[in-house]
């Protein structure tokens, strides 16, 4: 029988590295895909995923189960993704390179087939057209299937504000699909 998050965290705190590996295997895809959708490319998503896993390793001892482990992990991922985007924008602003000089294509193909790659490119293009906060809500609500309360816990925004952001995100996404 699979162990619960609480059991795994307790085992990890007691010194079990295997327990940490299990936690990583359980959540690594969620972390990566959230990062990928937020950042729009594999290289940045990979960097962020590793960063989040290291934070998880260092901070898991402080986790007190007042919220779900997945909510906590999403919170770390989401916050760091937004910080990453901010830093990237600042870097771009001060860079002498034009936008086209910055490589958008990743060195590694995360999609298994050509069809999947095309799907990924399409969804990435759409998501990157959304403002960061709307993108975050859209991803968490639409792709991760989280409730507004859970998203509120992750983002620290009010449920009303999140609903409004999701409404605007939906409006833009439906416009983009009609183009």
């Amino acid at each position: 029988m699979d162990k619960t998050d609480k059991e795994l965290v307790e085992e990890f705190i007691d010194g079990s590295e295997i327990a940490f590996n299990k936690i990583v295997r359980k959540y690594q895809q969620k972390i990566y895909w959230h990062a990928n959708r937020m950042l729009g490319n594999h290289d940045d998503a990979d960097e962020l995923t590793q960063e989040v896993l290291i934070v998880l390793y260092n901070k898991l001892v402080t986790f007190n189960f007042q919220s779900g482990l997945y909510t906590w992990i999403y919170k770390i991922t989401s916050t760091r993704a937004i910080n990453f985007i901010r830093k990237r924008n600042i870097k771009k602003f001060f860079s002498f390179e034009s936008e086209s000089d910055i490589p958008e294509k990743s060195s590694f193909d995360i999609a298994k087939s050509i069809e999947d790659r095309e799907k990924l490119e399409l969804i990435t293009k759409m998501l990157q057209k959304l403002p960061v906060r709307q993108r975050e809500v859209f991803i968490l609500r639409n792709f991760e299937g989280l409730s507004y309360n859970e998203i509120s816990e992750i983002t620290g925004k009010s449920v009303g504000g999140l609903k409004a952001s999701y409404f605007h995100a939906l409006n833009k996404i439906t416009e983009l699909t009609n183009e």
């Binding site: 590996n21 990566y32 990979d46 590793q50 193909d109 999609a111 990924l120 969804i123």
Partner: peptide, 24 residues
């Protein structure tokens, strides 16, 4: 919206996720 959600179903390269933990 279902179409968009369908776009999100992507089969991923398992090599990346198998390799993630050792790299981390």
């Amino acid at each position: 919206l279902s179409k968009i959600n369908e776009l999100n179903n992507i089969k991923t390269n398992e090599f990346y996720f198998n390799n993630l933990l050792p790299r981390m």
